[in-house]
Design a protein around this nucleic acid. Structure first.
Lengths: 360, 360
DNA sequence: CTGAAAGCGCTTACAG
DNA sequence: CTGAAAGCGCTTACAG
């Protein structure tokens, strides 16, 4: 049993199994084309030689890399726009499950970052043109995102995690996305508190994401709507502008301040639905300090913060997001990354998943 | 200017520049072998055709993938051993900077996860054998780590982030690693408090990592030693077992409990050096609750927790770790991933970096 | 169902 | 310094 240091090639496998290299390839890639007996013979040789195909050769010939690219963001740095206690938590969890689910489906994931030296667009272009990846997973897409237009114009397979809020073609099949239904999440948190007998239920949102009316234009607005619509429905009246809501930046201090504002608006406050775990913790700590620990809070993301401090939160179930992402990009059974089909799978091009309320 | 949808190949570039494809390749890979004039001509053609080399072809021929593999861990799940408020924070930050620094040096990073279906060792073997990556970055290496022995036996380039604490050949060049000097970190935090005039300086460590004497066998012990040695030195006496220390699991509740223990041991407590930001926050909150806010705490990792709650911490400077990792794997100038040289670069095979004390 | 031939797009090794 | 030839290890397309 010769074992060359660098691993056997398909030629050695074919020789040992006494078939052509083409048959070995068929066993690996088109098993239905091969008889059971031949297949067994080849698999035995593969096993014996511990043969593992050279991916570069496969990729070069087949023109498929079976790989995806995904960006990692520096959410934790001081320069980052994101603050709070769990910056990057969702993205990291998403990337983790994306890799896991991709690997399960035979797809590799290449991570990249952005810097000042090279525009992201050029990176994407290089990825696609060098055939290093078959498609791109985008996060944090914005309105008029140039990455979207580039990928669309190139007919490249891609998918956004997160709706491109303002985009005109948000619901077109050329703009596939998967996202979490924030509105439903805060709505459920509100209903949960109501079900516990709480009636004075406040909301703490992100500043800059105050309600503007009409369709929501951001995650923050979306989550606001879940609370305001539900509370109106439950109270059986329209919500007024000055009712139980406060807005602040993503920080403990803002959460504390919001709690004080809400208490000022209503000393009868019984619960607070928050747009994030960080703001929820700020509220919680301030309420404790004020001796109002009976007032419950809920957050969003089900980060370790909510677990450690024991308040309810909304889990984004990123494993399901990753699964859904690959379903859109690869189909139910396929092992190929391809563009979303315009006709057959139109319904699949946009997936809105419900977050899971974790009651604590 | 013909622009084929799939991008130009080296043949088209050669034709446009009126040279052989070999010369185009030389311009890209061995520019010194080409005259300035030829180089200019070729670069112009490359620019005009927006030529980007096919990486699969390059990899197949050159037998180099210019890629590294790194594992992502599910630090955030309930099943994870890690708890606290910032699980995975360091790993995620490390991976981020690893990707950034690798990309800067022309190296791709492929992420992978582990699951029950396929042993990690087989994944590593497949990575190396399929020539998908040139080397592996390991984190969370343990004593007698089978990944280490496999990679060593295969003569594969690899590097551990984190010392393999108990390993016999920890300092051999076949076992390259980069790590953070935890001992130095807690020592500096202790000295910082001392410099502020504080004399009763306690320590909160991880349970299971209580001092056992001799060389430290874990990160927890290492960080303990930094405090105990420094405090002995400053106090000018040997530290007694029952002095100002407490140990607990990685949670807010443990931090609270530890604070109560320390206060019980000494009502004169003036500062607490903690092994982690989570434990530090637990201490901080409990001390506040007891009305002892004047007692300062320090953490480890400089996570958003420490920033948000405003206590001192030790930054692991992961950007420098990533830089150092690639220095070991690629050398100062090189663009190749290779095994650590036994002779010339012996001093480079093991890098211990100092964490940076962030005083708040 | 199986196999001989061609070729994916580069870099290497070598000759000039 | 430059180029004609070979070949990396596979899969594809096609013939039998």
């Amino acid at each position: 049993m010769p074992k060359s240091r660098k691993g056997a090639s398909i030629i050695e496998v074919a020789a040992l199994a006494e078939v052509s290299i083409q048959t070995v390839s068929n066993v690996l890639n088109t098993p239905t084309r091969v008889t059971w007996k031949t297949r067994e013979k080849v698999l035995k040789a593969i096993d014996e030689l511990e043969y593992i195909p050279n991916l570069s050769a496969r990729r070069l010939r087949s023109k498929k890399s079976s790989s995806l690219a995904v960006r990692l963001d520096a959410n934790f740095t001081d320069e980052s726009n994101l603050h709070g206690l769990a910056p990057g938590f969702i993205q990291n969890e998403f990337v983790y499950y994306l890799v896991e689910e991709s690997n399960r489906r035979g797809i590799k994931v290449v991570a990249y970052t952005i810097d000042d030296e090279e525009p992201e667009l050029l990176k994407l272009k290089t990825f696609m043109q060098s055939r290093d990846v078959d498609g791109i997973i985008l996060t944090s897409t914005t309105e008029n995102d140039e990455r979207l237009s580039y990928l669309k114009s190139r007919n490249a397979p891609f998918l956004s995690f997160g709706r491109p809020w303002g985009a005109q073609d948000k619901f077109s099949t050329t703009n596939p996305w998967i996202d979490i239904d924030g509105r439903k999440g805060t709505s459920e948190a509100t209903a949960m508190f109501w079900g516990k007998g709480k009636r004075e239920i406040g909301f703490v949102g992100w500043q800059g994401h105050e309600p503007k009316g009409g369709e929501p234009r951001s995650t923050g607005e979306d989550r606001y709507l879940g609370w305001s619509e539900k509370i109106s429905e439950l109270q059986g009246k329209k919500l007024f502008k000055n009712e139980l809501m406060a807005f602040g930046s993503e920080s403990i201090e803002s959460g504390r301040k919001a709690a004080r504002e809400l208490i000022k608006k209503s000393a009868e406050l019984e619960a607070v639905v928050c747009v994030s775990d960080t703001l929820a913790l700020g509220c919680l700590l301030e309420l404790q300090k004020m001796g109002r620990s009976e007032i419950e809070v809920s957050g969003f993301d089900n980060s370790p913060i909510s677990r450690e401090f024991g308040f309810s939160s909304l889990d984004q179930e990123l494993a399901l997001v990753a699964e859904g992402a690959l379903l859109i990009l690869m189909g139910e059974e396929g092992n190929q990354i391809r563009r979303v089909d315009f006709s057959a799978e139109e319904t699949l091009a946009h997936t809105l998943l419900s977050p899971k309320l974790i009651i604590r």
